[in-house]
Nucleic acid binder design. Structure first.
Lengths: 346, 346
DNA sequence: CACCGCTTGGGCAACGTTACCCAAATTCGC
DNA sequence: GCGAATTTGGGTAACGTTGCCCAAGCGGTG
């Protein structure tokens, strides 16, 4: 018993035959290339529709373009990334490009390499790296193989463009907000960073620096108090425990990320203290759950959609001209005050 | 001024020349195919490493395989999907396959079609569709073009495998839990479904059915109370407002999804009622935020990791044998009681 | 009328890989 | 020690698309 005809895919040759033209002509129509009359175009398009033809990306890839753009996400769980992604897909919606996401395995440098290599192997036309943890050299290596845009790294490179949030300014907003409410003992929980280059480029480090500068700027240098853990719920919990054990307890905690703030809230509740009564808490990223009623976390909103849109725009520009000089876009964040911050108790 | 040599990619021919063997031999080594001696393998591998050669997926695709698997996610925001994804990538980690995610644009049938078509055009070796909203016919169409596994649809098809959570049982767990605490007036908020086929296949409908059956089974048929909105925060908020306006207010609300429960909590707080004192609330999916301290939502945990693992396994089996009879896997969910449910007030 | 430039269409050779074949060398069975 | 079977390696023709080139036709110009 035979399988019922393995049904070959319709190719450009079938279309050409059906429309009684050459394959070259069909190819020209597909790519909106020069050298095809309106009548020709119409005829070919009709044949394409009648046969339900779709160009095979692999074959196109062998000749150059795949019409595919890769986006590397280090961690799909981070609720901030979808915003960026929407910005990207929105900008690319009416182009011929299709976006695929590469799951970068939670901040793991090796997993990142695997995914980016896979994207290059698949001949993707360009890639967007979101908050990569890879080394500088590695990023430049990638960018030399394929047009690339890096999101969320402050370093400046000649071969790739960058789009970032102004984390320094964001931290400043938080400190300003808390100080404005009357707080003086404002502590910060940061993500520990050991590597020197990354210290300069990663957003977490910028937030910590921004915190320090802002504290100094408003005359609270004496009160600077930074705990180094990690940007996880656990990290927030541990950081808060340390802060709560201080002889002079801080009256406000600026957590470097919303997820960290979740851990802080837990530790605070466990210590029998109330928020914002006994202690104010602010996060960063304005993730979806920050707005949930029972949480209602004061946070900093990065213009995720704009970040994504700009990244896509720059990538298209770079695909069009690989030699163009690199661009750095820095967008301004916004403070979203909610119910976890209030004036300190008298 | 010349650009500094456009650096051609290393190809299989370069490797063959460098190792002084034929391209066929190199290809055999790459694919672990039959017909290459151990010495040959060693020699070729050395050459590969020395040149840093990586096979071009596009060229492979033209000959059949791309070693790429596509996963369609209808909504990256849904915090339940990462679990599934981990299960998939975990299962595929030590194979040669690479996973790429297609962003399916929030429950939009057309966007889904665009992504799945794109995957087929790119010659992907297999695709996993997570909670697709597309019609039955469309799913079968896809599955006839490429090996496919559908996750989160209860329908049975001959051409694709399915992996689902036993939503009926999950709903039963919630009702049982609440009834066990002493509740009788247990209401449910469901996602409105108009299409008939989907009513039978979609998890949301199964949860609603499971709720009804469970209520009947324990003699609470009289108390069945279902509000139809949507699986969104807004839907939960509106649903809860309706329920709270009832002359006999329910003492417990079973929300069809965690995000719905968030809306419920908000409406309840707004009405000046307390949880679980005045009203108990349960969700479904056990998403990350359900466990956050200030929320602590009773929910149902689907074995996301197992779902993903099974989906990947079935897909590999189907890739190996496209004619094999289809399989349906149904996994059992687990109740996770937290602080939003308690005995009703006397 | 010779010449030029432009438009329209097609022929052909890649692109990098693998499936299918065949040839030579080696081992096995008796 | 001879034919048969098995192992090992290579030659070659696709796979579907596009970039480069060329040819024919056409209108305008000097």
């Amino acid at each position: 018993m035979e399988p019922p005809a393995p049904q070959r895919r319709v190719t450009i040759v079938d279309v050409a035959r059906h429309a009684q033209v050459s394959t070259t002509a069909v190819s020209k129509v597909l790519r909106n290339a020069y050298g095809a009359s309106p009548e020709m175009r119409a005829k070919v398009r009709r044949a394409i529709d009648e046969l339900g033809y779709r160009p095979l990306a692999a074959a196109r890839g062998l000749r150059g373009q795949t019409y595919t753009i890769g986006v590397m996400l280090p961690d799909i769980r981070n609720p901030f990334f979808p915003e960026i992604l929407d910005g990207i897909t929105g900008h690319l919606a009416d182009t011929d490009y299709q976006v695929f996401l590469g799951p970068g395995g939670c901040n793991d440098e090796q997993a990142e390499a695997r995914v980016t290599d896979a994207m290059i192997d698949r001949g993707m036309d360009g890639i967007i790296l979101i908050a990569p943890v890879s080394s500088r050299a590695r990023l430049e290596h990638i960018a030399s193989a394929v047009p690339a845009v890096v999101v969320g790294r402050h370093g400046h490179s000649a071969v790739y463009d960058t789009v970032t949030d102004d984390d320094m300014a964001g931290a400043s907003l938080v400190v300003g907000h808390l100080a404005g409410l009357g707080h003086r003992r404002i502590a910060h929980i940061e993500h520990r960073e050991t590597d020197a280059t990354r210290r300069a480029e990663m957003p977490n480090a910028q937030r910590a620096d921004g915190y320090r500068r802002a504290m100094q700027a408003i005359g609270l240098a004496e009160e600077i108090d930074v705990v180094s853990t990690s940007y996880t719920q656990q990290g927030g919990y541990e950081g808060a425990r340390q802060l709560l054990a201080r002889p002079r307890r801080p009256t406000a905690v600026f957590a470097g990320a919303d997820i960290v703030a979740m851990g802080v809230l837990e530790a605070v509740a466990e210590a029998g203290l109330s928020v914002p009564g006994d202690i104010s808490v602010a996060g960063y990223d304005n993730t979806t759950f920050a707005s949930f009623g029972p949480i209602s976390l004061t946070s900093v909103d990065q213009a995720g959609h704009d970040i994504g849109g700009n990244a896509a725009r720059l990538l298209l520009e770079r695909i069009a001209d690989r030699q163009k000089t690199s661009v750095q876009v820095k967008l301004s964040p916004m403070l979203v005050p909610r119910r976890t911050t209030a004036a300190p108790q008298a």
